[in-house]
């Protein structure tokens, strides 16, 4: 039987697990503020809320409840992020999101390898993450920072200028839209059959077989060997 290697520790798995539903709450509660196309969410929640609060306006009641959910989820996510961020900062130089090789050519090669793997279904030696996953992680970090800062600026908008609040609102929406598009790709690839082992490791076991890592994540395997972690 192949040896099990821990690829995601308990803090990472706990954070990711709760990140999933908090981001879902934040997305669902934020979409109706972003566009009238999502008013049905506010109406859906507004019907029971208006009935309970004796409110005459279903849309306003729904939107007020969604704002409460949005603020609460954001606050919980902030609290949850503190230990995770500290853990990541401690090993910032060794994070998987940094490229295995730097430079334009290395990035192009990374995309060629992804093409081989996802389109041609050929065997490729990846690191813990492939180029697409690394780029995704970098975009997530940047957009989450912008979302957090702009979100808190909007919560405390009375302390800042009107112009700054307008920029914060725009930055909040733009960074969410970028993150949202990336999340669709992330969700698709997370449940894709090729990523079954990663999915299992993230949501259930935290580990992968040594043989699987050697075969599919060769660069990562070499790195673990070099660091005497295997």
């Amino acid at each position: 039987m192949s040896k099990k290697i821990v690829v995601y520790n308990n803090v990472e798995r706990f954070f990711h697990y709760h990140l999933v539903h908090l981001v879902a709450f934040l997305t669902i509660s934020g979409l109706p503020i972003l566009s009238h196309k999502f008013d049905f969410i506010a109406y859906g929640l507004g019907i029971p809320v208006a009935a309970l609060t004796n409110s005459q306006n279903v849309l306003s009641a729904g939107m007020s409840a969604l704002r409460f959910i949005h603020y609460s989820s954001a606050f919980l996510l902030t609290l949850l992020s503190i230990p995770f961020v500290f853990m990541m900062l401690r090993k910032i130089a060794h994070l998987s999101m940094w490229p295995d090789r730097w430079g334009v050519q290395a990035t192009i090669d990374g995309f060629k390898e992804m093409w081989k793997f996802y389109i041609k279904q050929e065997h490729v030696r990846f690191g813990k993450m492939n180029t697409g996953q690394k780029l995704f992680a970098q975009v997530v970090v940047i957009t989450m920072i912008v979302l957090t800062i702009s979100g808190y600026m909007l919560v405390f908008r009375e302390s800042i200028s009107s112009d700054l609040a307008t920029y914060a609102r725009a930055a909040h929406a733009i960074s969410f839209i970028i993150l949202g598009m990336m999340l669709i790709i992330h969700l698709y690839l997370a449940v894709h059959p090729t990523n079954k082992n990663s999915y299992e490791a993230m949501f259930h076991t935290g580990t992968m077989d040594e043989e699987f890592i050697k075969d599919h994540h060769g660069i990562y395997y070499d790195k673990l060997k070099k660091e005497n972690k295997i």
Binding site: S35, A171, A173, I174, M181, I184
Partner: peptide, 25 residues
């Protein structure tokens, strides 16, 4: 307001992009 104009433009890009990503997936 330039910021709000940018927000509206990105909303259109986001809608088109999201549909393209779902179709592509």
């Amino acid at each position: 307001k330039l910021a709000m104009s940018a927000r509206e433009a990105v909303k259109v890009v986001g809608a088109v992009g999201s549909v393209a990503i779902v179709a592509g997936s």
